[in-house]
Write a protein that binds this DNA or RNA. Sequence first.
DNA 1: ATTGATATTATGTCTATACATAAAAATTAT
DNA 2: ATAATTTTTATGTATAGACATAATATCAAT
Lengths: 231, 231
Amino acid sequence: MLRKVGYKDIKREVFNRIRQNEWAPGELLPGEVVLAAEFGCARATVNRAMQELSDDGIIDRRRKGGSRVKLTPVRQATFEIPLVKSEIESKGAIYTYQLISSIKEVAPLWLQKQLSLSAYTRVQHIQCIHYADDRPYQYEDRWINHNTVPLSAEFDFNTQSPNEWLVNEVPYTNAEVRFSATISDVKIAQALEMANGEAVFKAERTTWLSDEPVTFVTLYFVKGYEMLISY
Amino acid sequence: MLRKVGYKDIKREVFNRIRQNEWAPGELLPGEVVLAAEFGCARATVNRAMQELSDDGIIDRRRKGGSRVKLTPVRQATFEIPLVKSEIESKGAIYTYQLISSIKEVAPLWLQKQLSLSAYTRVQHIQCIHYADDRPYQYEDRWINHNTVPLSAEFDFNTQSPNEWLVNEVPYTNAEVRFSATISDVKIAQALEMANGEAVFKAERTTWLSDEPVTFVTLYFVKGYEMLISY
DNA sequence: ATTGATATTATGTCTATACATAAAAATTAT
DNA sequence: ATAATTTTTATGTATAGACATAATATCAAT
């Protein structure tokens, strides 16, 4: 006996037709009513399938315009931005952390530009190292906007890393990360206990709370670090 | 007059309560029926809101177990894996491409291990360079499995890059990318017209078609390259 | 030809209801 | 006590019907 078709069946079938070029990039797909008739199910079921395909970046949908196959049906990969602590512990290592400095100061010019801050905005500048099994794992160089996060001026970052504290205490609405490769300079090399001139994986993250910059952080990962994404 | 509550309102409200620690990490949330009563809507509406929060990585849901706030409410970022060609053209630069070599050979040992290939599996080894405005942008070092993609033995990769050809012709079911930083050796430095010992952003991607390895590629990006992700 | 009003249409969303299913909880058998 | 079985429950999914909404298409007026 034939099983009832579910939205997952429809999703798979439509995806296959797209993959096999039965429906080519840019092409207008049949409407939900038509597909519902073909698959013998309710329109709502087709709707859910198509909506997820849209979320997955396979098709574009517009009211009245209908659904069409994306011109570049790029698959989207999702990856999680974990807490360093969780990341380290999930590898079975013991997490420790050391604060190097926490200074209240006026935002330097480059940071003003980077975060579109007004002049003389005060920021908290924090530098620290995250360890996995007592070996350096990540060097964190962070700036927190006093205007949006006044509490940062008082908190004792010896007890908890700014990373963890912010995640737990300060919400954000949107963020941006820039990944790149760089060469270890003296400061980084010393902090991460590696030679000078080594390849370092670098991440620069900025977060905002409804257009107000919250924090800017540069993370330097120890030599050999890999960021893995499956999809 | 009050508007009807939609699933987006519920999603936002629940998210806010979680952010403001009204519902803490690990905590069991009210069931869908309860929430539906509170918000004065149908259970299906709450269901959609909660399902999306689950997709977004905010909460965990289990049948009978109910929904709870994720212990580490990590936000997921989605990013697209673009075609090099599209990536370059979207920056307003002119894309060109040069094939260096395309050789049919038996998979070397390290690749056999990497892709879990049986011994003596034949592969196509392709090396090429992608240019933006005639300046090197990316060096591609690719291996294609002849068993899964026999056509790769015949195709003339002078006319189209393996990247583009594969995306258009060969489907895959899952993939894995590893991003890291490395130092340019002689070969890479020469290909990307940069000095020896510079920092290079590296990506290694493996794709499978239902457990059959399709291709393994190492991409080296020119000095200064940044991968940007917003979320 | 251009503008503006109006109709049309495909998707977006909500509802009430029903049944499915996984997993925890309670109960019974060993 | 422990294992096997049944019950309960929260989520998962499907449906028919309804109305909302955005965007296109059409047609009328300038």
